[in-house]
Amino acid sequence: MEETTIQDKKTRIAAVGDIHVRETDSGKWKEFFTQVSEKADVLLLCGDLTDTGRTAEAEVLAEELKACSIPVVAVLGNHDYERNHQKAIRKALVKENVHLLDGDCVVFGDVGFAGVKGFGGGFDRGMLGMFGEQMIKDFVQEAVDESLKLDGALARLESEYTNVKKIAVLHYAPIRATVVGEPEQIFPFLGSSRLAEPINRRGVVAAFHGHAHIGTLEGETTKGVKVFNVSKPILVDQGFDPPFYLFEV
C-alpha cells in the first residue's frame, strides 16, 4: 500500500489501455505523456503496455515515461504475458516509479486505485461455469482468482482509509456492454462478470479497462457503477486527441 497527496479537491484521472509499445517507438510517446501531465493528476495504463511482451519494449516505455510528471498507475495485459517476461516487464516499469498493480492498491489524496489484470470467462448468463474437464476448471479458476485479488485490494482501501473514493483498474472487461462491437464469439475471452462482483459490492466509483479494441467506450454494472473501455483504438475512433479519457472524481 502506498500513499501520496494531491492538493486539488478533484482528482483528474487520465486513462488509456492497449498502447502496445514497440522497440522502435523511442521518442514516439514523450509528447503524449507530456500532454497528459498537463491535463491530469494521475495516469492509468490499462494493460497491453507492450506489443509482444518483450522486456525491451517495456524498457522503451519506461524511458518514454520520464516525460510524465504525474503518478502512473498500471496493470499488465495479456500481451505483456506473451513471452513469459512479465516479471522483467514489471521490474523495468517499477524502476521508473510506475505503480504496477496486481491485487494491490495505491492512494493519491482521497482517491484509491485497486488493480488486477483480470481474465476471461464470459458475461451474465453466458458466463462459463466450473464444470467438466480440468482445463475448463482451471480457466474458470483463473477468473475467480483475479476477482478475489480485486476484492482484496478494494477491501484494504475500505479498511485502511476513511471516505476514500475507489477506482478499479483492469485490462479485461467486467461487463458485457463495453465489449459490444467485437464478434460475440470471442466475448468469453474479453472479460468476465466475476470481476463486476467486487466492483458492485465495494462501492467503486468507476472502473477502467482495455483489451476490446473495437468495443464500446462506456457502460455500467448492474449496480450503476460506470465502466469505461479506454482501449486506445476506441479513443482514437471516438476522436480523442491525444487519445486518453479524462475522468474527474
Rank of each mutant, 00 (worst) to 15 (best):
V249P: 03
L61W: 05
F139D: 05
E38D: 13
K30N: 11
E182L: 08
V72Q: 02
V75M: 07
V73R: 00
P233W: 02
T221Y: 02
A173E: 04
E133F: 13
G47K: 02
Y245R: 12
C105M: 12
K91R: 15
A58W: 02
K137F: 03
L148K: 15
T24Q: 09
R194H: 05
F113L: 03
H209V: 10
T24G: 05
H20R: 10
L170D: 01
T55I: 13
F33G: 05
D124Y: 14
G224D: 06
V116Y: 01
G129K: 14
D25E: 00
K28C: 07
H20I: 10
E31L: 11
T162E: 14
T11M: 12
P183S: 08
V179G: 04
F208I: 09
V179R: 02
D110I: 09
H20N: 12
A207D: 00
N200F: 05
G129S: 14
E23F: 03
E133V: 12
D104C: 07
A206H: 05
E142H: 12
P174Y: 01
G191D: 01
E59H: 06
V144D: 07
A62G: 13
L45S: 04
A40H: 03
A155E: 05
V230N: 01
T34R: 15
V36K: 00
V116E: 00
R22S: 09
D110W: 08
E220A: 12
Q35S: 15
V180I: 13
F189P: 05
W29M: 10
C105W: 08
T52H: 10
V164L: 08
L43S: 04
E158N: 15
D80E: 03
I199Y: 00
N229A: 10
L148M: 12
E160N: 15
A168D: 00
A62W: 05
S231F: 10
E82P: 01
P243R: 04
L128A: 14
L170R: 02
E38C: 09
E82F: 08
G53Y: 03
S147D: 01
H171V: 06
R202G: 03
D8S: 13
E2G: 14
R12G: 11
Q141E: 12
F119C: 04
L170F: 05
I199S: 01
T50I: 09
E220P: 04
V111D: 02
L65N: 09
A40S: 12
F228W: 10
V42P: 04
K95D: 15
K28M: 08
D104S: 10
